[in-house]
Amino acid sequence: MAVTIAAPLTGTVIPLTEVPDPVFAKALVGPGVAIDPGEVATLTVTAPVAGKLTSLKPHAYVISRQPDQGVLVHLGIDTVHLKGAGFTLRAEAGQQVEAGEEIVVWDLAAAREAEKSVVVPVVVLETDAENLTLAEAGPISSGDPLIRIS
């Protein structure tokens, strides 16, 4: 059964290879794409798929559709060093979420002041790249199809 993963934010789709972090750029975490939010000041980041919010940190979260497959949304690069500054959690770890539900509101000022990249990788965990169809590079709106798992 095919599953569609929606864009968790509005911005510009870029290939993972352009993410300024070798762990994401080399798809070591898993295959996917990234979204550059552009010059916005604040972002509402949503659940890209329905499932259980199995991990929730200010800068990243994982939603699991089934025990062996999750979707990681990582807000920026090296933003863990911000220790939560600029991130407001709108959900709790362990809860069931629907696609499009608010997870984090992100004020990007703290990340930009610390000179952190605000690019957002969206990665499918525990799957192979050949099972995925990725959105083309270019503009995307929150909720639009981003990744299709076949």
Rank of each mutant, 00 (worst) to 15 (best):
V104D: 10
G143W: 12
T127I: 11
G138H: 09
P121F: 06
D144R: 04
R112T: 01
A137D: 15
L146R: 13
A111Q: 00
P121N: 01
S141K: 12
L132Q: 13
A110M: 08
A129K: 10
V120A: 00
E115Q: 03
E113N: 06
A99L: 05
T133E: 15
E115H: 00
S142I: 10
W106S: 11
A99R: 14
V119D: 06
P145G: 06
A129D: 10
V120N: 01
W106F: 13
T127W: 06
E126G: 06
I140H: 08
A99D: 05
I140G: 06
W106V: 10
T127F: 07
S117Q: 04
E102T: 07
P139R: 07
E136R: 14
W106M: 11
A109Q: 11
S142F: 01
E126Q: 10
L134V: 09
E130L: 08
A109S: 09
T133Q: 15
P139D: 09
E136T: 11
S142V: 13
L132Y: 11
E101P: 01
P139T: 09
I103V: 15
G138R: 13
G100K: 11
L132E: 12
S141R: 10
P121R: 01
G100Q: 12
D128N: 11
V105H: 00
R112V: 01
E101W: 04
V124N: 06
V122N: 01
D128G: 13
A114P: 02
A129H: 08
A114D: 03
E115C: 03
D128A: 14
